[in-house]
Computed example of a mutant assay.
Amino acid sequence: MKSPLVVLGATGSIGRGVVQAAVDAGWPVIAVARDSAGLKRLQERHADAHLSVLAASVASDEDGVRLAAALRKLGRPLGGVVACISGTMERGRLLDHPAVFLQRKFGEDVLPHLAAARSLLPLLAEANRGGGYVLIGGPGSEHPWAGYGHRSIGAAALNMLARVLHDEARALPVRVQLLAIDSPVCTEDNIGHACPQWPSALAVGQRALALIAQPRGKAEAVVHFNPADGDVEFGPLESSEFQEPQSPDPFSPDQSHPETDSDPALLPSRCLQDARNLLKNLLSPHPISPNRNQEPSSP
């Protein structure tokens, strides 16, 4: 039997996909999360799988030490760790928030990864199974994510944290890598309005497992998710089904579209229209008004 895989943030939208991918591949799983109720639902969902749950946090160094002690008590050498750690999703300009907002988001999105790694990397090394430690990173690390600037800063910091951990862990029989997802992910929570080109949480889990299972040797610190690397599952529609909407365009400015946002047949058109609007705003010659609530004056 394979050594168990530890999934941090197992009850989150991506964490559930990682757990599903591991169960499908026959991995024993130790699901870790703060949400006890969510862990119970996860157990019920995978009642026939080799799944253990552990209610714990990695918000601080102390939490990480307690988690490592609890895992050690299980008496099972670990085969790998996938860290799906992320804070709450909030939208807004950084300029509209006090500095303490970014400090709080940094503490939610980045520092727990360090607290977890400091305690779990030595534990993983003790097993000496050649297991991997994979951090899951989100979009926006190289270009600002409009409305989610704090997430871009966090993603960039996580990128560098992974590189540092990768370098510092060379002396250990453990491989540390970041799986960077350069787009949003289609999950159970957003499937009603997800775009067809977004990878599914299950596909992310499958790619993370491939990194865990790869032979020990030279490996990149940061691996960008690439659907061409293997068979992956996309969101509501396969990418091959993407087609330019036929005329008349239901999303043109002079026509209404009473259809609901949950209609998957309209998602490709909606994504195209969002892209058109973004390009239109970027190419607009109008200056930015100093008053956000005031329309820009005509040239």
Rank of each mutant, 00 (worst) to 15 (best):
E142D: 15
E142F: 06
H143N: 11
P144E: 07
P144S: 09
P144A: 09
W145K: 03
W145E: 05
W145Y: 14
W145M: 04
A146P: 07
G147Y: 14
Y148N: 00
Y148L: 12
Y148H: 09
G149F: 03
G149P: 00
H150L: 05
H150Y: 11
H150E: 14
R151V: 03
R151K: 04
S152Y: 08
S152G: 15
S152H: 09
I153R: 00
I153S: 04
I153F: 14
G154Y: 07
G154L: 01
A155V: 02
A155D: 15
A155C: 10
A155K: 02
A156M: 04
A156W: 08
A157H: 08
L158K: 01
L158F: 13
N159D: 15
N159T: 07
N159M: 07
M160E: 15
M160Q: 15
M160L: 11
M160Y: 07
L161P: 10
L161G: 10
L161R: 05
L161Q: 12
L161A: 10
R163H: 08
R163K: 09
R163Y: 09
V164E: 14
L165R: 04
H166A: 07
D167W: 13
D167V: 04
E168D: 15
E168S: 10
A169C: 12
A169D: 03
R170V: 08
R170I: 06
R170Q: 14
A171V: 06
L172Q: 01
L172Y: 09
P173Y: 11
P173I: 05
P173A: 09
